[in-house]
């Protein structure tokens, strides 16, 4: 395939790629970029913008800008880890179900049907009330919830490939399970899976930020965008927009990812306007 000429990429997708790259770099180099420490108390509470503190200080007198920058690392990092776990486990189980079929497929599929019948946020709340709120628990619970969606997609797309003649031929040749998955099926289902990864990341990111906003996700003093909105929300009633900045960061990142995924899906479907 020839390189995609830059002109054929829509503006929204370019915007998305630039924003995603910027957020990634901010997260990676957070400790170099942030003027103050993540949990360092540097001034009075709710100081205004400007002066020593570009975006003012939060409800405990910590520098808002520094926390936003560290938030990029924490919020995105945790969401990314969750998505990767959900993806690896979900896709592996989905592929297994598709290739092996039989009772394994039945058992996994019925279990996933049951999980999907409970609304995600409600289910997460139930599990959090039982296991308590800690970051490893949060990652585990959300990835278990999300892997059911990944399982469904992986199984559905793999099912289409499993019935192909070349898979049958490989089976008759006596190839093992690992070969079938790795060499015959996986290369043919990568495109939808990659697009799904972007969408799932958005869902995970929004779900974790929602839980953090409710005070049940990432716990203080870790800088996290969802809980930062919660901590400073009272300032909104005084007409101050500072508490909305972390939420705006979340929105900006998810919009960007959606723009890129939208473009990828559009390209993959081969639709021409």
């Amino acid at each position: 395939m020839t390189a995609i000429s830059l002109r054929s990429v829509p503006l929204t997708a370019i915007f998305g790629i630039v924003v995603i790259a910027a957020f990634a770099l901010t997260g990676i180099f957070a400790n170099l970029l942030a003027p103050y420490g993540e949990t360092q108390i540097v001034g009075m509470e709710f100081e205004p913008w400007g002066g020593d503190f570009v975006l003012g200080t939060d409800s405990l007198g910590r520098d808002m800008l520094s926390r936003l920058i560290y938030g990029a690392r924490n919020s995105i990092g945790i969401a990314l880890a969750t998505t990767i776990i959900a993806f690896v486990v979900g896709a592996a189980l989905g592929l297994l179900a598709a290739v092996l079929g039989g009772w394994i497929d039945q058992a996994l599929s019925r279990f996933v049907d049951l999980m999907i019948a409970i609304p995600g946020l409600v289910f997460a709340l139930l599990l959090l009330s039982i296991f308590g709120t800690s970051i490893p628990m949060l990652i585990l619970i959300i990835s278990v919830l999300e892997l059911t969606r990944v399982f469904r997609l992986a199984r559905a797309v793999a099912m289409d490939i499993v019935v192909m003649d070349y898979v049958e031929a490989a089976r008759l040749r006596g190839e093992g399970l690992w070969w079938l998955v790795r060499r015959e099926i996986l290369p043919n289902i990568m495109a939808p899976l990659v697009a799904e990864f972007g969408l799932r990341f958005c869902f995970v990111f929004l779900a974790i930020s929602a839980l953090s906003f409710l005070g049940l996700g990432i716990q203080p003093p870790t800088a996290d965008w969802g809980s930062m909105v919660r901590d400073n929300a009272m300032m909104i009633t005084f007409g101050d927009i500072t508490p909305l900045l972390p939420a705006a960061c979340i929105a900006l990142l998810t919009v960007s990812i959606n723009f890129v995924v939208d473009w990828m899906l559009h390209r993959a479907s081969g639709l021409k306007d």
Binding site: A210, V229, I236, L244, I250, A251, T254, I257
Partner: peptide, 14 residues
């Protein structure tokens, strides 16, 4: 597309 990417509490607070 933008609106579905916004966290609900962001829309609510705006």
């Amino acid at each position: 597309l933008s609106s579905i990417s916004f966290p609900e509490y962001f829309v609510a607070y705006i």
